[in-house]
Design a binder for these strands. Sequence first.
DNA 1: CCTGGAGTTGTCCTA
DNA 2: TTAGGACAACTCCAG
Length: 474
Amino acid sequence: MVKRELSIHWFRQDLRISDNPALTSATQLGEVFPVYIFDTVNSGEYPMGAVQKIWLHYSLKALNKALGGKLLVYSGDPLKILSELITEYEIDKVFWNRCYEPWQIARDKKIKAELNKKDKEVLSFNGSLLWEPWEILKKDGSPYKVFTPFFRRGCLSAKEPRLPISTPANLSFNDSIITGLKIDELNLVPDEPWVKKIIQKWQIGEDFAQEKVTEFVKNGLKDYKDGRNFPSKTNVSRLSPHLHWGEVSPNQVWYQAIESDPELSRNTDHFLSELGWREFSNSLLYFFPNMPKKNLQPRFDNFDWIEDCKLLKAWQSGATGFPIVDAGMRELWDTGYMHNRVRMIVGSFLVKNLRIHWHNGAAWFWDCLVDADLANNSAGWQWIAGCGADAAPYFRVFNPILQGEKFDKEGHYTRTYVPELTNLPNKYLHAPWMAPELILEQADIKLGKTYPKPVIDLKLSRDRALAAFANLKN
DNA sequence: CCTGGAGTTGTCCTA
DNA sequence: TTAGGACAACTCCAG
């Protein structure tokens, strides 16, 4: 009998058993030690936000359960920890699925080189993108900067995404190592009352993620293209945090959507293109590693931003006096999530009406979002600020009143998160300061007391933003 | 090289 | 009330 290899599978953002290329390859070769390391030394400027850590905690619990309690958990420097394990337990190979953030790429490259020096083989796989960033390039070999050609020409004419692989039947994990920590000992969950509030909105882990895909494909996809714009409808998939942690692979989502609708109706087509946006953001971050900090369009370095703590605070806490904006910011605070349409509205409001630097918005989202993801977050904020790769025209400034009336006409969404406006008629819901005194009185609203007056003049702030944009030319 | 079409997500004014 | 055009000019990208 051939000697069975001993391998480590290092879990990172692939917290699942199914369609896990690295894990499957490792198990086919022999016995596997499943390892998670909370990296305390490499993440540099982008340590996990508070909410991200909470998600991680519960996702690790679920993973550990799926592994029969055999997940080995550590905290510290991955290179040091892996090296010690390898030496101590005479391990032959290390497997992982690739991560694509700049600091992760640098870390993994270093670890691979160091382990190779010890004659240990490192095998890395693609477990979290439909296409590798370096596979999708223009004819001249440079990366795309505009979404539509990236997706249509680049992705769709490239080779089809890998089909999901089935879960190995003979998953056998070695449990002869006993040096790990308990997941609780990572201390990822602070002892705060708000934690419970967020956690109860989500079902975390691979099993729930897979169920959610099935449920979305069955119900949400039917009217996705139009329904996705309405925050009170249930047409968006809300898969983003699951995709971020790899509780489900994009390949599983991609093929389930296609199988459910082989004709590729406009709904499915549009949903696939949203997965395409995730690829695009990752591609941008890969080729422009400064994207989280640096404007992709350098001329924006001269933009006339305003620094105003009070206004920033009003935005963060959902107290701007613009109901759809406040609803979005409170949804974020209460649930760790915000509907995509509303993300655009609050983003436009911060950057264009308040004229506060998009870095402030990105930082707040990073801390509050369960789906906080460096590629998506930076690309999204650069897009809404207009300094991104393919910028929106400068005159595109969202009007929170019109957006509210268009996408939350009945006010179901707004009233959910801004209950003090519950009794205000729809006609005035998105602009309470326009309501006659009597109506406000009847609705039990005292502007400036029970609900804020608008923190800025909409028209004036729009004109000033347009002027600031016009200045950029010089 | 040059050419021409196109660009996630809007708003406002006018007829 | 509603529909259509204006709002700039630029860069990206393929041919």
